[in-house]
Computed example of a mutant assay.
Amino acid sequence: MKIVKNKKIILAITDDFKIKSCIEDNLKQIGFDVITITPITNEKFKYKNLKERFVNFIKKNIYNDLDYKKTLRQNFNKEALLKKLNTVDYTLTIRADLFENDFIDKLIKCSTKNYAYQWDGLSRYERIMMLIPLFTKFYIFDKNDLSQKNITYPTTNFYFDCYEHLLKKEPKYDLYFLGSYDSRIKKLIPICELLHNKGYKLNIVLICHSKEELNKYPFIKYYSTPFSYYENLQMAADSKCIIDLHHDSLHTGLSFRTFEALGFNKKLITTNQIIKDYDFYNSQNIFHIDENADFSGIDDFIKSDYKEIDSIIKNKYSFTNWIKYILEIDQNTPIKIP
C-alpha cells in the first residue's frame, strides 16, 4: 500500500546480514524513492592519477609500506559515499556510529528531517553519544537508554509486512533457531536437547565452523557464511515456532526474532522476560523460559494452535507503521517501550 508519493529518503545503514535489502523492499512498497548508503562502498578502487600509482609502487616495493594504499582506499571510499548524497525529503540512519563525522555532517544537510535508530545498546558504543543531538530525533529500543529524556525516543524492532507470500508457506519444522556461536550456547543446548528427545523436528543453525564439542548433537547445522536476512525470514516461515535467546549482557530490548514470530503468526520460545510487558504478549503464543529453566507445559504449548493477535496491536509493529512513526508521518500509531 502506497502511503507516500514522490518522497525521497536516504537510508544510511550497516550492511550486516543484508537486512538493508528488506528495508529497501518495504520502503519501496509504500512509495519511497530510496538511496541506500552503507559504510563500505562496493565500488572498485581506482587510482586518481599516475602519481598515486607510482608513489604506491615505490612505498610498497622499496619501503615495504602498505599504509599508503590503505589510506588511498579509505579516502576513495569516503568520496564514493559522499557522491551518493543528494537533497531528499528524509534521511534515516541506522547504526550512526559506523559512519564518520564528516559523512554525518554532510548527510544531515541533505534534509531538514533527519532520523536515526540504534538497534543495539548505547553503552556499547561510546562515540554514539556525541552524534545523538545531530538528528531530528534519535530512537532506541532499550528502555535503559531512555534515561536522557527528550534526547532519545522509544521504539522497538519491527516485522516486514512486504513479504505476505511467506505467510502461505506450510511449516517443515517444529522449531527454528539461527545464531552465532557465543555464550548463548549454554542456554540453547539444554532446550534443543530436550525438544529433540521429545521427537520435535528442529532447524538449529549456527553461523560458524563445526565445533567439536557440539558435533554429538544431530540437530545442529553449521554454516560458515552468514545468511541474508531474507533467507532467515524464509526459514522462519518454514517453522511453527521460533527460539529467541536474547543477549542479556548487551541490552534488554526485544530482538527481531520476537517480531518475526509476531509478523508470521509463529509461536515463540524466549528467555527475555520483558516480553510479558508488551501488549501482544499471550501465553498461548509465547513461552518464557525463566532462570530456573522450567519447561513444564512445553508440549501443550507447541502442540496448541496459535492465537490470532488483534490486528490493531499487530499492525503497530509492522514496518509500515514503524517508518511512519519514526519519520513522524501522519496517522501513525506510536510505539512505546513498556
Rank of each mutant, 00 (worst) to 15 (best):
H165C: 11
Y200K: 12
F264E: 00
T225F: 02
S224I: 02
I58P: 06
S311A: 12
L27T: 04
F259R: 00
E231M: 07
D330N: 12
C192D: 00
T258W: 00
N332F: 15
M129G: 06
K198Q: 10
L92Y: 04
K20N: 11
K137A: 08
F54H: 14
I30M: 09
D33K: 13
N282P: 05
Y159E: 10
L131D: 03
Q234H: 13
N272L: 08
K240C: 11
W322P: 04
Q74H: 10
T36N: 13
L167F: 09
N272G: 13
D310T: 00
F264S: 01
Y173S: 14
K267S: 12
K266S: 13
L254H: 02
D174M: 06
Q234D: 03
D300Y: 09
L214N: 03
Y153I: 04
I242A: 09
Y163N: 13
K70E: 12
K18R: 14
A116V: 06
A261C: 12
F319C: 00
L122G: 04
A80R: 14
Q273F: 09
S180P: 01
N75F: 03
S239I: 00
K336I: 03
I191E: 12
F45P: 08
N203P: 07
P334T: 07
T156W: 02
L195V: 04
L175W: 11
Y68V: 09
D310L: 00
F259S: 07
K316S: 04
K69E: 13
K316C: 08
E212W: 06
T38Y: 10
Y153R: 00
S224N: 07
I104Y: 10
F141R: 04
I312W: 06
F99M: 10
I35K: 15
T38R: 05
A80M: 01
K8W: 12
D248S: 05
T270G: 10
M235L: 14
D25H: 09
Y159R: 06
